[in-house]
Design a protein around this nucleic acid. Structure first.
Lengths: 205, 205
DNA sequence: CCCTTAATGGGTCGCAAGTTCCGTTAAGAT
DNA sequence: ATCTTAACGGAACTTGCGACCCATTAAGGG
């Protein structure tokens, strides 16, 4: 009677099902590094993971589903914000983290894939939005602490400060496609900090 | 003997060839608005343009070729930088222009398509890079004038200032996929200007 | 106005991505 | 240990993108 077909993998998630998922996500990352999102073929992923392609189609539906699952996996592993004692130190740590993620062969390919997938798949877009919302919220705490210490003006919007540090890095990566190096990250922190100290991140100011 | 096959459309560019190009690019934009880059089918474009699909494949090769051509077309129509008399006015005008382009149904879809195409096609990436290099160079003049007027510190990197205004807008559009409104544009100008006045855009400072 | 041939366009074909079918394997409950 | 059935996987089948062939049209030169 209950014709409700559970999404495959939710009723017996242990043993083989878990191994298949791990193998497929691993293979997906390998494929992304080699061919990028546009060249992500379900066929290849299945073969590399050593599982049947039917399984990959059934559980993930398509390339977008694969990278979305990958993103939720990454979201769980994200680290808490730094606390070096100064805003400058914290923001530099944040910029270094973003730069590191983007520069990393495997992680960078995955991030770009999710961003690409988000342009044509609503689930991927939602996962991406959620991921960055969490990260920005987490790091905004560091800015709030700086405000509490009196390093920055009261009322400074912490989330906007954090976004301002990442923005130039992603702008180069995605729009102008120029190389992204420490110089870019350092300038992002320097300019954001100058603006924050001047009170430019205080709303209605 | 001369087996050199010229790229189709270069020897007799007048009359029909020009009409076909115009119709195809027009149809491409329509399709982009409706289905986005991922759903851009050569078949559909040809049908909508009222030309044979063979022609579209022969002259543009694929979806990436279409949007690349579209981008070179847009590049020619780009306007010169504003000159309102103050940096603030000029940067606000720039931010408004970017916001307007991104918000515009047709132009916005095209821009996003080129950005998407750039992730999997080197020609599209090059066209995109070139396009923004030109635009940034053009608007950097306004910043240079401001430096000459004494509004900003000597040595301020004009191109970086212009990039800093656009970055938050594109960051939201592509990465966090939050809505982009005037508030975002206004804040981008406000923070960039504060940083510039503080000398944060002067290299080796 | 005529001629050469660049450029177009309809029709067809091959291949690879994606779907369906159904038998096989092994989770997880008793 | 045994049973039920969730989940997997091989193989055949369908679909549609992109390539090719060749007849037709019209640009541009004389």
């Amino acid at each position: 009677m209950e014709q409700q077909t559970h999404l495959a993998g939710t009723v017996r998630p242990g043993g083989r099902t878990a191994r298949v998922r791990a193998a497929v996500l691993e293979a997906t990352q390998d494929e992304l590094v080699e061919h990028g999102f546009h060249g992500l073929a379900m066929d290849q992923v299945a073969a590399r993971a050593g599982v049947g392609k039917t399984t990959v189609y059934r559980r993930w539906g398509g390339p977008a589903g694969l990278v979305t699952d990958l993103m939720t996996e990454l979201a769980d592993r994200s680290a808490p914000h730094a606390d070096t004692g100064s805003v400058e130190g914290d923001l530099l740590a944040n910029a270094a983290g973003v730069l590191g993620a983007v520069a990393d062969k495997r992680l960078g390919a995955t991030l770009q894939a999710v961003i690409a997938a988000a342009t044509c798949d609503e689930q991927a877009a939602a996962a991406l939005r959620e991921f960055y919302l969490r990260r920005v919220r987490e790091w905004a705490k560091a800015v709030d602490l700086a405000v509490a210490r009196g390093e920055l003006p009261a009322g400074t919007d912490g989330m906007e400060v954090v976004r301002a540090v990442s923005a130039p890095i992603y702008y180069r990566l995605l729009v102008t496609r120029e190389p992204v190096d420490e110089e870019v990250a350092a300038r992002a922190v320097r300019t954001t900090l100058a603006a924050a100290r001047a009170g430019a991140f205080v709303p209605t100011a």
